[in-house]
Design a protein around this nucleic acid. Structure first.
Length: 555
RNA sequence: GCCCCCGUAGCUCAGUGGACAGAGCAACUGCCUUCUAAGCAGUUGGUCGGGUGUUCGAAUCACCCCGGGGGCGCCA
């Protein structure tokens, strides 16, 4: 695929140096050692390794000496201008500025593919996200789920995983019964009957609209049916309409799922029963108190969990066991679930159940995100899905737009209980990071357009003319994009994209100030800088695209 | 009672074993006859909630405490 990133290259050099030093008896034989390379403080170096510090104890040598030995054994590399050793024992790597300048050509040549890496090696990966109960419109909380899941999916695809996006539809269970009963009451009310939304029903206005939609299609045909038939019909039709609406909400955020997998389907296929049977064969099931239990007290969990209720209905947990097993049976080598932190207690039992079925629970990663508070007029908006008192994805996107919605929802670490301030996202649009980043992109576009009008031909540039500190600082960050994508994919940390984009935009703005691109007095330098502007445009656009945001040509 | 997340500058948050702790916003001071001022430069601002350990090195790891949020067998 793409060329090796500088970080990966340096890691390779260090690994070679380590084995050379051992062969030459400069270091005692060592067991397999992790070679770590990180970003150095900018004034010290570009990259740094603490390898010598970590090995010092094992090799019984002072860290500075270990560092010197390793540094001396490093092979030559055209990536590097200088390698130095710094107290207390760091090995510092300074990139060659001519190598750096030449990377502009690499970036432009790779175009929209620049940033890709081969971490996944084409492995099939499934990411399941959103999966909100189809009993109401998507809330801003689901919005965070969707944006985290989709952004991560984009980064994983860039890291060469074959990614499938899936939405698990919880179309079975008590909440769907309540949904149908609420719908029936609303439908009856439309026909002048004295019906009431059940006390635990969904009081939101959208249920009235849903009933009206069904009424438009069916007229009073449902009134004559026995109650259970009417409920079944409303369940089915209401669910279909709700899923359409959820699909539209996702589309508003620029997200499309490859698969919508139904819990009812899993049950109808007998997969839930089959999972329970398998667990029983493996001696992991107990009957007590009239219910069927998954026995996990002896392993990962601190308590057993119900699989089949005393009324004979399987639980959500039983279906989830079958569901996760089915994911692996479909050939995905790794799975990611994106869950709200309120489900964290569910994690150990799902993993325990996978293990009990003979699967490797390590294949499943659960990305938990803390819940979203919404501020409107400086006040926290109280939300309740049951009363219909929610802030929806649709409202937010309509209010602040898809770019700002996605940016704010992805820009915080999943571990942070974030506040989404609706007024701020709108009022301060001038001071908004969204515009800041997009403006940098628009500036690159504007420069390129101007160059075109003035007949400055791109290409054939002598890139080694790029020596200005502002040019090189910008480039140092640009060449880290593949490393960033690797980190985002590995750490499941999509928010890093937002911080990178912000920093990149800042460095571009600084370059714009310090380095005039189109200079009639210096055609050669103009061509080189034009090439750099083109590369910067590609990197900015790639970041925005990974975050699902637009990259405007002008603002 | 037990489990998970958080506590870092006035505010919103990065940084989760590495070098003197960072950004944006807010506040203050400057910069448009030249490729977009939705921009740039500078200044102010922090006992990293508290304590004790581990380590060559701790915002980061362990333990205890304080504070905020979320969760805990027949809801999903």
């Amino acid at each position: 695929m793409s060329r090796q990133s500088a970080r990966a290259h340096i890691r390779g050099l260090l690994a070679q140096a380590l084995s050379v030093a051992q062969e030459q008896n400069k270091l005692p034989p060592l067991a397999n050692t992790d070679v770590t390379v990180e970003y150095a403080p900018p004034e010290k170096a570009d990259y740094a390794s603490n390898l010598a510090l970590r090995l010092s104890r094992a090799v019984r040598m002072p860290p500075m000496q270990v560092a010197a030995v390793i540094a001396a054994a490093l092979p030559e590399s055209d990536y590097l201008a200088e390698v130095s050793v710094a107290p207390p024992g760091f090995i510092n790597f300074h990139l060659s500025e001519t190598w750096l300048a030449r990377q502009v050509g690499e970036i432009v040549a790779q175009g929209a593919a620049y940033g890709n890496c081969d971490m996944g090696g084409g492995a099939a990966l499934q990411i399941e996200f959103c999966s909100a109960n189809p009993t109401g419109p998507l809330t801003i909380g689901s919005g965070r789920n969707i944006v985290l899941g989709d952004t991560l999916a984009r980064a994983l695809a860039a890291a060469n995983y074959r990614v499938q996006r899936e939405y698990y539809v919880n179309d079975v269970g008590s909440q769907m019964d309540t949904f149908a009963r609420t719908l029936l009451a609303r439908y009856q009310q439309l026909h002048g009957l004295d019906a009431h939304v059940p006390p635990d029903g969904y009081a939101g206005e959208y249920m009235v609209e849903l009933a009206a939609q069904i009424d438009k299609e069916e007229g009073n045909a449902l009134l004559g049916l026995p109650e259970d038939e009417a409920l079944n019909a409303l369940h089915e039709r209401g669910l279909a309409l709700m899923l359409d609406s959820i699909r539209e909400d996702c589309a508003l955020l620029g997200v499309e799922f490859d698969e919508w997998l139904s819990q009812a389907w899993l049950e109808d296929e007998g997969r839930v029963q089959a999972a329970i049977d398998t667990l029983r064969e493996r001696g992991r099931v107990a009957e007590r108190e009239g219910a069927t239990w998954f026995v996990s007290t002896d392993v990962e969990e601190d308590k057993d969990n119900v699989l089949v209720r005393s009324n004979g209905e399987p639980t959500y947990f039983a279906a989830d066991i079958a569901y996760h097993a089915y994911k692996l049976e479909r050939g995905f080598t790794s799975l990611i679930d994106v869950w709200g932190a309120d489900h964290h207690g569910h994690v150990p039992r799902v993993k325990a159940s996978l293990a009990a079925l003979g699967h490797d629970p390590e294949r499943l990663t659960i990305l938990l995100y803390q819940l979203v508070r919404v501020l409107r007029g400086g006040e926290e908006v109280r939300m309740s899905k049951r009363t219909g008192d929610v802030v929806t994805v649709r409202e937010v996107v309509e209010e602040v737009g898809v770019d700002a919605s996605r940016y704010f929802l992805v820009a915080r670490s999943p571990d942070t209980a974030m506040s989404f301030d609706l007024d701020l996202a709108q009022q301060e649009s001038d001071e908004n990071p969204v515009y800041y980043i997009q403006y940098a992109h628009a500036r690159t576009a504007s420069i390129l357009e101007r160059a075109g009008r003035e007949g400055i031909a791109p290409g054939a540039a002598d890139l080694e003319l790029l020596r200005h500190p502002a040019e090189l600082t910008l480039l140092r960050l640009m060449i880290r994009l593949p490393e960033l994508i690797e980190d985002v994919a590995l750490q499941h940390a999509p928010h890093r994209l937002a911080f990178y984009a912000q920093e990149l935009a800042a460095l571009f703005h600084a370059f714009y100030r310090d380095c005039r691109v189109i200079d009639p007095e210096n055609a050669a330098l103009s061509r080189a800088r034009l090439e750099l502007a083109q590369a910067a445009k590609l990197v900015l656009a790639r970041c925005l695209s990974l975050m699902g945001m637009s990259a405007p040509e002008r603002m």
